[in-house]
């Protein structure tokens, strides 16, 4: 296992955000994490990325507890939920990739941009791009340090269908051709069914973790998921 999470619990001022979550991720996995809004997906990611440290349980990356060392972060590429980009930020795509690069290697920047079909726009200002294009730049940025794992937190929210399809195609290629393990949270069950080989269904506790086909072929599980999602939806409104 390259990621091992055991009994992870998070409590925000007495409110449980995650309750004793345990699962592992093997090398080459494409794990789709699904769950309704407020299910704790982003909290789980924040814990895994070292942004939230006040949790109970253990998170191990490459067999090492993340409390012990932050070195694991150099093996992770992170694509955030919504790129909050100041339209006036005066940096080109190439500069954005260069600043996140650990070493100074212009060829790797070109390669990463090539993988997301953004190499022709390398010298454009980041603020001049559409949200879909910006999100592709963020994948390139995540790839520039040759990570072993890509972590994507609902990356296609607010992106048009064309760019979503491109995005999924890129993710599929990265997983199959580049052998990069992917942890991806999404609301889009169709896309998860199509792309992910493993599924983790989350709603504060872990409902399901296993082979994608097993989840989507289990009518009971799907019904339970729909009911929970509906309840959460009603609760939010």
């Amino acid at each position: 296992m390259i990621v091992d999470i055991e009994n992870l619990s998070v409590d925000y001022s007495g409110i449980k955000a995650l309750d004793k979550i345990s699962f592992g991720i093997a090398e080459g996995d494409f794990l789709g994490i699904i769950g309704p809004n407020g299910a704790g997906k982003s909290t789980l990611f924040r814990c895994m990325l070292g942004l939230h440290t006040g949790y109970d349980g253990t998170i191990k990356f490459f067999d090492k507890d993340i409390h012990e060392s932050k070195k694991y972060l150099s093996q992770i590429g992170y694509v955030p939920q919504k790129p909050v980009i100041d339209k006036n930020f005066p940096a080109t795509i190439r500069e954005i990739l260069a600043m996140s690069q650990h070493s100074n290697n212009p060829k790797k920047i070109d390669d990463a941009l090539q993988k997301v079909w953004m190499h022709e726009l390398a010298d454009r200002r980041i603020g001049d791009l559409s949200v879909g294009q910006q999100q592709r730049v963020f994948i390139a940025k995540a790839l520039v340090n040759s990570p072993k794992i890509l972590v994507l937190d609902e990356p296609v929210t607010g992106i048009d269908m064309y760019n979503q399809d491109l995005f999924f195609q890129i993710l599929g290629d990265l997983n199959k051709k580049e052998k990069i393990s992917i942890i991806w949270s999404s609301h889009d069950l169709d896309a998860v069914e199509r792309l992910a080989n493993k599924v983790a269904c989350l709603n504060k506790t872990l409902f399901f973790h296993g082979i994608s086909e097993d989840f989507f072929s289990d009518e009971e599980m799907m019904k339970k998921y729909s009911e929970t999602s509906m309840q959460m939806h009603m609760h939010h409104h």
């Binding site: 070292g50 942004l51 932050k70 070195k71 972060l73 992170y78 909050v84 940096a91 600043m99 996140s100």
Partner: peptide, 16 residues
């Protein structure tokens, strides 16, 4: 590092 932290604190933190 300063430019990265200016662009996005969260992403800069995740980069270590």
């Amino acid at each position: 590092k300063l430019l990265y932290a200016t662009f996005s604190e969260e992403q800069a933190k995740v980069s270590g």
